[in-house]
Design a protein around this nucleic acid. Structure first.
Lengths: 123, 123
DNA sequence: CTAACGTACAACAAGATGGTTGTAATAGAG
DNA sequence: CTCTATTACAACCATCTTGTTGTACGTTAG
């Protein structure tokens, strides 16, 4: 299974879209079952237009897809971008783990003590 | 290893914090190596105060932690919240997979055809 | 055809966001 | 002590966000 990394642009859109609990709830619901925008809107204490906007934000991030069925727009969740976002976070974690390994190496390896006195700094 | 789920409040903060590429870059850098706020600031084409605000947003989401060293504030990344956010997305994916399984069951199981004629709708 | 439903979109208001500059406090260097 | 580096924070501004209401448009039901 090939998972393509998110670029900065996509990551901006995806994480922004997920940074709202109403939108996260919409994603969860439409991942479980396809729903029209009206059906979704009935589930929240806000206007239809507001829910419509939330769906639009999710659509821009490609977290959901709309498909027309008669006069309804059926919304369903697309798991691909969610998977990519998750992998991006896993990458962060991997970076951290490499650092932990590096520190462990420094602590374990007592013979090569060069470059230990002057730890390099960024900036 | 016990991973506690993010509540709505935390997820709001974490995903919002990650929805900015400068902040994602800061997270990546301080996961790899601890850096003072000044050292971080030198890496971006914006004022020190702007970077300071970004760090504050990350701190509020508990994605980074600050520790004083003399007159410097050393920033380092905390992988815990990243892990939790990743797990939350994995949960979304699992929801989707359960739905896929459910559909597969419906297609495969031709004997129990009850409740198929009236698919339940939300709303 | 007509009425109702579902959707799209524009305009608006309040608040949040992301940048700026300026000022002050604090700690280390000399 | 004095000077400088680092940080903290307030005030300000432009833009974005997130809700609202109102209007228009296409589709289905009767």
């Amino acid at each position: 299974m090939v998972v393509i990394e998110l670029d900065d642009e996509q990551a901006d859109l995806v994480f922004h879209a997920l940074a709202d609990r109403t939108r996260r709830d919409i994603v969860k619901r439409v991942l479980r079952q396809e729903l029209s925008v009206s059906q979704l809107a009935r589930g929240y204490d806000m206007s239809f237009a507001a829910v419509q906007k939330h769906v639009a934000v999710l659509e821009r991030a490609a977290l959901v897809v709309k498909r027309r069925r008669g006069r309804e727009q059926i919304v369903h969740g697309d798991v691909d971008l969610i998977r990519r976002a998750s992998r991006l976070l896993d990458e962060y974690e991997a970076t951290w783990r490499r650092r932990a390994d590096r520190i462990a190496d420094l602590l374990a390896d007592t013979s090569t003590t060069k470059n230990v006195t002057t730890p390099r700094r960024e900036g």
